[in-house]
Amino acid sequence: MLADAISAERFRLLKDRGTLFWGVLFSPIAGLVMGVGGELFARGMMKGMPPIPVDLVGRMVKALAGGASPVVGLFVLILSTAVLAGDYRWETWRLLTPRNGRVNLLLAKLATVAGAVAVSLVLYALAAALGGLFSALTSGAPLVTYRGSAATDLLGTFAVSWLQLMILVALSAVVGVTTRSTMGALIVGLVLAALQSIVASQLHEPSLKALAIPAFSGDLLKTVILTPRSVVDTPAPWGLALAFLLAWLVGLSAAALALFQRQDLTRE
């Protein structure tokens, strides 16, 4: 059953401390360290000036909006390739495939990574808030209230970044199953993540071609979420952008499942 496979995969991931650290905890820790470091540096540069007010929710929203950057993507890829392609590396499919269906096994891995990515994003946002709190406590900066709709902005940016990262995860599943290599899935995923990010940054009009690039669709959705309705002239095609992101996720996941379902495991 799928629930059994998910329990087993979750148990495995919790025991794999290396992957947990690099794939789930490193981005939040690095975010916290860089936030505090940046704060100390900025304070050194602005001696004598009054402290800048700290918006904790704003910092979390900003962190979540940037949560699908290629740098964060690299660490998510470390997580996903370890979980999704690790059994080729360790030649352990022979241990698992006799105990559960292949679709269940791969779906369980995707579900486990999805949960871990969500946890990592939440921690990433909390690390940004902690950095802000550090700034407020050490500099005496006042805490200010977020000006937008906190719940909508937090949930919206979280959901879009999670979706963008999960597309990367699904891509690494396809490449991992095809190449049977963790390194192959990591490198291909990283190159494509960086490439789409560069291409998306060059595009401005939300054409169909542009919307087909997950990074562009993701940025458009985040802009729609974070921009107050009163300042929007023409409505952006957010529905189409969301549909493209979902299509990528479902399409790549289905491709990985179909490939794995038909794969000979003579050589794992």
């Binding site: 495995r12 025991k15 794999d16 690790g86 360790w90 352990t92 022979r94």
Partner: peptide, 9 residues
């Protein structure tokens, strides 16, 4: 064949 296991377990 030779059994293999995830090395971290």
């Amino acid at each position: 064949e030779t059994p293999r296991y995830p090395p971290y377990l």
